[in-house]
């Protein structure tokens, strides 16, 4: 399975109903974004998860019915449109007793610009998370370099202490930080290029 398929390639392959791999991949790419999107609009975690599920299911059926026209708009906009309807529907179903979670509860579902901004933020967020995972899991980066990055950034350990503990110079500590930044930049760039249909 090609794990680095672009969105365009994924969509092409998705026409084949037997291609479960692609669907799984699609799901992995968009489910977290949809969940974050819905939570940002004021839904509880549970509701957000439901909305993501319903949106993905609806998308697949509409897509296979040929109702998604690539000429008419980007995938992101299409998904946002479906999610929006699902959320409105949820609100209708539970009107009155509906509790909004989080702090963005007054997000207007009719404000397209706002919705697409939230979507874009969530998408970027997802890219940055994948990049971090990739750096930690299958990176070609020297483990010591990553250790420097974690101590320095995540734990805010002073550079001199990092240097002493890892028995390198402070100068090397800074170089390691730069290497991690460079590596992450490359990963982010690559992932961004894979999201070629919804940037």
């Amino acid at each position: 399975m090609d794990i680095n398929r672009t969105t365009t390639a994924m969509l092409d392959a998705l026409h084949d109903a037997g291609n479960a791999d692609v669907w799984e991949q699609f799901d992995r790419r968009y489910r977290p974004i949809l969940i974050g999107f819905a939570r940002n609009l004021g839904l509880t975690d549970q509701d957000a998860a439901d909305i993501a599920q319903e949106t993905l299911a609806r998308f697949l059926s509409e897509y296979r019915d040929g109702r998604y026209d690539r000429e008419k708009g980007r995938l992101g906009a299409w998904l946002v449109g479906i999610a929006r309807y699902r959320i409105l529907d949820l609100r209708r179903r539970s009107a009155g007793k509906y509790q909004l979670a989080g702090e963005s509860a007054i997000m207007d579902l009719d404000d397209e610009k706002n919705l697409s901004r939230v979507w874009e933020d969530e998408r970027r967020h997802a890219v940055l998370r994948i990049a971090m995972e990739e750096l930690q899991e299958n990176s070609r980066t020297d483990p010591k370099t990553i250790k420097v990055f974690e101590m320095l950034m995540v734990h805010s350990v002073p550079p001199q202490v990092v240097a002493d503990e890892l028995e390198i110079s402070v100068h090397d500590v800074y170089l390691a930080k730069s290497r991690v930044a460079q590596r992450l930049r490359k990963i982010v760039e690559r992932i961004e290029s894979e999201y070629d249909d919804d940037a």
Binding site: R129, A131, S156, A181
Partner: peptide, 25 residues
């Protein structure tokens, strides 16, 4: 630029920050 970019990465990975021990200031 580099620090801002790393800051953005960390912001998107806050759980990484939270699960890590030793960030008691």
């Amino acid at each position: 630029n580099e620090n801002d970019f790393l800051g953005e990465i960390i912001g998107a990975n806050t759980d990484l920050l939270q699960t890590s021990q030793g960030d008691q200031h």
